[in-house]
Design a binder for these strands. Structure first.
Length: 715
DNA sequence: GTGCGAGTATGA
DNA sequence: CATACTCGCACC
């Protein structure tokens, strides 16, 4: 490739060619056909988040395809970028620069991904650049070479048939798990016939051969029969591993690829290119897989869309569910939201008729679900000393003891930090303030206990009951609970699964399994019983989502338990009868209906859409003044926010700037304004947010305002 | 981000 | 009046 020739010419002309109106830069001839390349720059600046025209030197003509990675000279520096299209004429009268070089001719920014990224950026008032950062994996030069036309020709010659064309047979991997639902089979036939149905599935399958990965695999298989591809997004790598093994059994290991950052750049980029070239038609992965360049997409699936891991951690904080929603519309693909529970957002889609609800009939539910009983969360008065020691209520204690004769027993405990109340390490008496008798809690930063009512610090605490000097969190982590249960059930194996030591699967033999929500190991034959502790702590969280979130965690754990017909039993400890009732009746759809109704009445998301703006007081005022809010927007604030718990060094962006109580911080700190608006107005408002942000960025004046649209952990 | 021109401050 | 410097903004 004689590429040096032209780029050197450019350099020279830049050094010597001062006259602006003289001949175009460089003496390299532009390509004869479509000499213009529109380039999206790899720059985080909002006002540069648009296309710029460059000349394509004839030398680059073949490589400079739409979607290729390039380097271009921009404002005195060499910036990476992508060609979005080739054009005959420039969009500008500015003097065009030639492309610096074509880094790789692989068309990694496909037209579909670009369109999707634009839609996502528009919806979240963010930049296309920020979305593409997630959508397109970094290049691995070695992998690029595997996908040159020559290399591919060689491979094809070697007789390596295209796996993509292999039509999956009805593998002997068991019965159709969707046959349990009234509309399940019809959903599959529509997929197989090339249609694009949309459904919200309330899945019954928590474990065993008819589990949710099997249900999803079946939908994927039907889509393949229609000759189309599919993409499946799951919250984490544990779920990915489960899905992967079932897909391997049902459609074959060669029929799909994993797409997850966990795998490292090289395999990730290879999988990406395999999809892009149509060698493989199915992609499964974590949230960034929502953008997988599956050719001729027929189905997009998201498992457990309410899991907070589906929300991107960086701007514009897009949610995989909404990415797939947009994608299914843009590419006319089917959409499946599947979960043991039902998110309020999913309910909205069902309620509006956009998607069909797929749920089992009551009789089927009764045949599959365990028996659920509830008990109060207070156990301090338990007379049974062993039960008190295990800090579990008697009913739960009994269930565990009984269940252990038949198999593993799951104990779900809240994550540490859920309930900040402290108690005495020795006698379990709640720790009280000596000043006002308020409960003691841990101040978020220095670790010194302080009263949650009067704020008085209590560095030298000692117990008023027994004189002990050590404090414990009243909601113990999985590790400590496991330890205590081990003592309470002497000769029983205790397995702990939480945080950094997650167990994916455990055998069918009796054991106590202590796990935090989301970390529950799967048992091939199901748990004999489950005990759901800390319900009140989870429900009392200061969050709009506390109720639906807790219920989701209960359903997830309870789905791993054997049916009532096999003596499967779930004991839930919480006092909120409404939330508990939905679990007792195993009715996630009604729970979601009720929740959505509540949000409608309150005018809160997802019944409406909203944006959170944060910044300094002055910055916010100026931003909102420029924004020019239309009628119908409810603006709340600006209100002071507590300072971020994380010191500003870590991430100056809109990290978690909430605080459990608003007493710290305020003056001179950050402020927040919330905007609530109807769906119909959303496009106009996000567009205004975007352009105001871009203008502010171009002026580079005043304090920046950070925008977060439909954030998941804001309210 | 960087480079540049306009506009303004500053000193011989 | 020449030079230094800041500011705003365009960058293809």
């Amino acid at each position: 490739m004689p590429a040096d020739d032209s780029s050197e010419a450019v350099q020279l002309s830049l050094l010597h060619g001062f006259t602006p109106s003289a001949k175009p830069a460089g003496k390299a001839q532009p390509a004869s056909a479509l000499p213009i390349a529109r380039v999206l720059l790899d720059s985080p600046l909002p006002h540069l988040d648009r296309l710029f025209d460059y000349l394509v030197p004839a030398d680059f003509d073949a490589d400079a395809v739409a979607g290729a990675r390039v380097k271009v000279r921009f404002g005195g520096q060499e910036l990476p970028g992508f060609i979005t299209e080739r054009a005959a004429e420039a969009d500008t009268t500015a003097r065009l620069m030639p492309l610096g070089k074509v880094v790789s001719p692989q068309p990694v920014l496909s037209p579909q991904i670009l369109r999707l990224a634009e839609a996502v950026a528009a919806r979240y008032a963010g930049t296309v650049h920020d979305v593409l950062r997630v959508a397109i994996p970094p290049r691995a030069a070695r992998v690029d070479k595997e996908f040159t036309p020559e290399a591919r020709a060689a491979e094809a010659g070697a007789g390596e048939g295209a796996a993509a064309d292999a039509v999956p047979g009805p593998e002997g991997a068991g019965a159709n798990p969707l046959a349990r639902y009234p509309h399940g089979p019809r959903f599959l036939t529509h997929l197989a016939a090339g249609h694009s149905p949309r459904a919200v599935l309330s899945s019954l399958g928590g474990y065993g051969p008819q589990d949710w990965p099997a249900e999803i695999a079946e939908a994927v298989r039907s889509t393949l029969i229609s000759g189309r591809g599919a993409v499946v997004v799951v919250p984490d790598n544990k779920d990915l591993a489960r899905l992967q093994s079932v897909l391997t059994a049902r459609i074959g290991a060669d029929a799909f690829v994993r797409l997850t950052a966990e795998d490292g750049p090289t395999p990730r980029y290879r999988s990406f290119l395999q999809l892009l070239h149509g060698d493989v038609r199915v992609a499964v992965g974590t949230r960034s897989a929502a953008y997988a360049p599956v050719q001729d997409l027929g189905l997009a699936v998201i498992w457990d869309d309410a899991d907070e891991l589906h929300a991107e951690q960086r701007a514009p904080y897009q949610h995989a569910r909404d990415v797939l929603l947009l994608r299914s519309e843009l590419e006319n693909a089917a959409l499946l939201l599947a979960s043991h529970s039902r998110s309020t957002e999913a309910q909205r889609l069902v309620a509006s008729g956009w998607a069909a609800g797929i749920a089992a009939e009551r009789s089927t539910v009764r045949a599959h679900a365990p028996r659920v009983v509830s008990t109060t969360d207070s156990f301090s008065m338990e007379r049974d000393p062993l039960a008190a020691r295990a800090r579990i209520p008697h009913a739960a204690w009994k269930a565990a003891q009984d269940g252990l004769t038949r198999g593993p027993v799951l104990v779900q405990v809240a994550r540490t930090g859920f309930s900040p109340a402290l108690s005495c390490q020795e006698c379990r008496e709640p720790a009280r303030c000596r000043n006002c008798s308020g409960p003691l809690g841990l101040a978020s930063r220095n670790g010194i206990p302080a009263c949650r009512w009067c704020g008085r610090p209590e560095p030298m605490w000692h117990c008023g009951n027994c004189g002990g000097t050590h404090l414990r969190g009243s909601t113990a982590g999985a590790g400590r609970t496991a330890e205590e249960l081990g003592r309470a059930f002497p000769s029983t194996t205790v397995i702990s699964s939480a945080g950094d030591h997650i167990r994916t699967e455990i055998p069918d033999t009796p054991a106590l399994v202590v796990a935090t929500p989301g970390a529950e190991p799967v048992v091939p034959g199901g748990y004999a019983a489950a005990i759901l502790l800390d319900g009140n702590a989870m429900l009392s969280r200061e969050s709009l989502r506390a109720g639906e979130d807790t219920l989701r965690r209960w359903f997830t754990a309870a789905s791993l338990v054997r049916p009532a017909t096999e003596k499967g039993l779930v004991v839930v400890t919480a006092d909120d009868s409404a939330t508990v009732g939905h679990l007792l009746r195993w009715d996630p759809a009604s729970a979601a209906e009720r929740e959505l109704e509540l949000r409608r009445e309150l005018g809160l998301p997802p019944a409406v859409r909203y944006a959170e703006l944060t910044g300094s007081r002055e910055g916010l005022d100026a931003f909102i003044a420029r924004l020019g809010l239309p009628e119908g927007v409810r603006a709340v604030g600006p209100a002071p926010l507590a300072p971020p718990v994380v010191p500003p060094s870590a991430n100056a962006q809109t990290r978690d700037v909430r605080s459990p109580d608003g007493q710290l911080g305020g003056a001179g700190g950050r402020y927040r304004t919330l905007l609530f608006f109807p769906y119909g107005q959303a496009p106009a408002i996000t567009a205004a947010l975007r352009s105001t942000k871009a203008a502010a960025s171009a002026r580079r004046t005043g304090d920046p305002v950070y925008i977060r649209v439909d954030g998941t952990d804001v309210l």
